[in-house]
Design a protein around this nucleic acid. Structure first.
Length: 553
RNA sequence: UGGGGUGUCGCCAAGCGGCAAGGCACCGGGUUUUGAUCCCGGCAUUCGCAGGUUCGAAUCCUGCCACCCCAGCCA
């Protein structure tokens, strides 16, 4: 099960820090802003942060980086916790909130003012942008840059007291307007936002920016290794600047790794939100979404997602990972864990003309081909059955290993049958196949030595149950939706959802519990829908098809 | 055209001066009451390019090239 993987660069760093005594205990954190649902990229970050702590006997905090009440909400806070727990991770103690450090952060802001390292600026956003310079030209100092400590302190306190309008003033660090690193051109520490915060209500009208908050939050919590993604690399000098100039009690270090971008999907929150808002998908947890809750509803198990995250590795390289790798992890996991069952998607009736009417044989079939401990289930066999329409042809070449007129096929776990006749509709499509049972072939080959070439699934027409099946395919048609500056919606796959209203399932399947996983033999892996499935009205979502190496037809 | 990163098989990824791991995908073959699983085998004389150092380089040096990130009072 455990495949051998060499240590990644983060593990190497931690190992060295431990060995050299730079840190005693590893403390990491997963710091989402509660402004959306977690997706596969977050799962990777969770795997990295919790995984690092786990591997070295340390701890990992969950911290909501709620420094901007504008786009945040309790709904997201709840879903994020649910998703992390579902993935199988446990954070240290209670969830933390950046907002609970607002008092300390503010005190540190005053400290910087007193040290003449921060000032209140009256420039409008537009004016500030003008003075910031460009990537190739240095910026220009704000006319307010040299205010006295007293005046700055007074202004800052009045900002906090709510005396000024939104946008009229900000607190900035006094660093270097000519720095080649844009983040060091007097970055903003506080801005005025007169809207209620989901945690602190109306206590505050000024909010710290990410830059002024993150490193200090890490320091407060005693984080040793603050791991984030590559786009924050340029922020590291600023992260360090604050820790150097503030009386913090610990010294966290920031490290960055490359984001996880699977092909054929999108992971930007903006795009995911648009898919939901424009009703292109049903919800954040639509089974086609790359969200954690979407993958859950689709039928991916946490083990598969975690395995995938490990499989792709952790490096400083940005790239696109083939979804086939995720799909492999999902199949590998489900192949081992999902009990088998039979389901007919596109029913074609078969009448066994020599089988007694009303007779029912309760066959015993293993739930899993290699895991005996999973036991057996009873499958009723009757005179009238359904097989898949694709599994019958009046005539076919020798490569076709299913039922052909005049030929034999094995009904999975049951008898070998031989097709004798076919009834067709006006268009010549088969509507009913008449066949006979080859005697004494349950668990045995035919006595006459004429072995069938193939095996197909079937469901008793009398005892089987109807079920709704939701078949999902990739949400996008191209590897990198929107690549080349085009609208990513242009790349949507119009056939990503297909609903089969009346599939037939073997009776025991109706009793499945929501979120129970199965392999419908020869069709793929399915999961009983988390919300819509019931014994009375079974609903299954197709997680993923079986690997199919059959070339022709 | 400033700064910061990254370039090893179609994709991911080991490798850190001694002569290219592994996984996914793909292609063969075997087993099989799932055209699944499983099992065997194949798949980079070459490491973005060009020079240089060295007995010896993907690994060191120099110079190019390509791609990604940064000019939110977002994170």
């Amino acid at each position: 099960m455990e495949s051998k993987t060499s240590a990644n660069f983060l593990q190497t760093i931690v190992e060295e820090d431990l060995r050299e005594g730079r840190v005693k205990d590893v403390v990491t954190r997963f710091p989402p802003e509660p402004n959306g649902y977690l997706h596969i990229g977050h799962a990777k970050s969770i795997s990295v942060n919790f995984g690092l702590a786990e591997r070295f006997g340390g701890r990992c905090n969950l911290r909501f980086d709620d420094t901007n009440p504008e786009k945040e909400s309790q709904e997201y806070i709840d879903s994020i916790q649910e998703d992390i727990l579902w993935l199988g991770y446990r954070w240290e103690g209670e969830p933390r909130f950046a907002s609970s450090y607002f008092g300390q952060l503010y005190a540190w802001a005053e400290h910087l003012v007193r040290e003449s390292l921060a000032y209140v600026d009256d420039l409008s956003a537009e004016e500030a942008r003008q003075l910031r310079g460009t990537l190739t030209e240095p910026g220009v100092n704000s006319p307010n840059r040299e205010r006295s400590v007293e005046e700055n302190l007074d202004l800052l306190r009045r900002m906090k007291a709510g005396e000024f309008d939104e946008g009229s003033r900000v607190l900035r660090a006094k660093i270097d307007m000519a720095s080649p690193n844009m983040n060091l051109r007097d970055p903003i520490l506080y801005r005025i936002r007169k809207i209620p915060h989901h945690q602190t209500g109306t206590d505050w009208v000024i909010y710290p920016t990410y830059d002024f908050a993150h490193g200090q939050e890490d320091a407060i919590e005693g984080i040793t290794h603050s791991v984030c993604t590559l786009e924050f690399e340029d922020h590291r000098p600023l992260y360090d600047w604050f820790l150097e100039h503030l009386p913090v009690e610990s010294r966290p270090r920031q490290y960055e790794f490359g984001r996880l971008n699977p092909s054929y999907t999108v992971t930007s929150k903006r795009k995911l939100k648009q898919l939901v808002d424009d009703a292109l998908v049903a919800s954040w947890d639509d089974p086609r979404m790359p969200t954690v809750s979407g993958m859950r509803r689709r039928g991916y198990r946490p083990a598969a997602i975690n395995r995938f995250c490990e499989m792709v590795g952790t490096t400083r390289k940005d790239g696109v990972v083939d979804v086939a790798m995720l799909e492999f992890a999902v199949r590998e996991d489900l192949n081992e864990h999902a009990p088998r069952g039979m389901c007919v998607l596109n029913p074609l009736k078969v009448v066994l003309t020599d089988y007694p009417e009303g007779q029912v044989e309760e066959l015993r079939l293993a739930r899993h081909p290699s895991r005996e401990e999973l036991g057996e289930r009873g499958v009723p066999f009757t005179r009238e059955l359904y097989i898949d329409a694709d599994d019958f042809r009046a005539e076919a070449n020798k490569k076709y290993k299913r039922l052909v007129l005049g030929k034999r096929v094995r009904l999975r776990g049951a008898y070998v049958i031989e097709a004798r006749d076919v009834v067709t509709d006006a268009d010549g499509n088969p509507t009913e196949v008449h066949a006979v049972v080859v005697p004494d072939t349950v668990g045995k080959d035919p006595a006459d030595g004429v072995k069938p070439k193939g095996v197909i699934q079937w469901v008793s027409a009398e005892k089987g149950r109807r079920a709704e099946l939701r078949l999902y395919d990739r949400l996008f048609n191209v590897e990198q939706p929107g690549r080349g500056g085009q609208d990513f919606l242009e790349d949507l796959n119009p056939d990503s959802l297909q609903v089969v209203k009346e599939a037939w399932i073997e009776p025991s399947l109706a009793a499945a519990k929501p979120e129970e996983h199965f392999q419908f033999e020869r069709e793929g892996y399915f999961v009983a829908d988390r919300y819509d499935h019931s014994e009375q009205a079974p609903v299954f979502n197709k997680t993923i098809g079986l690997r199919d190496t059959w070339g022709g037809s």
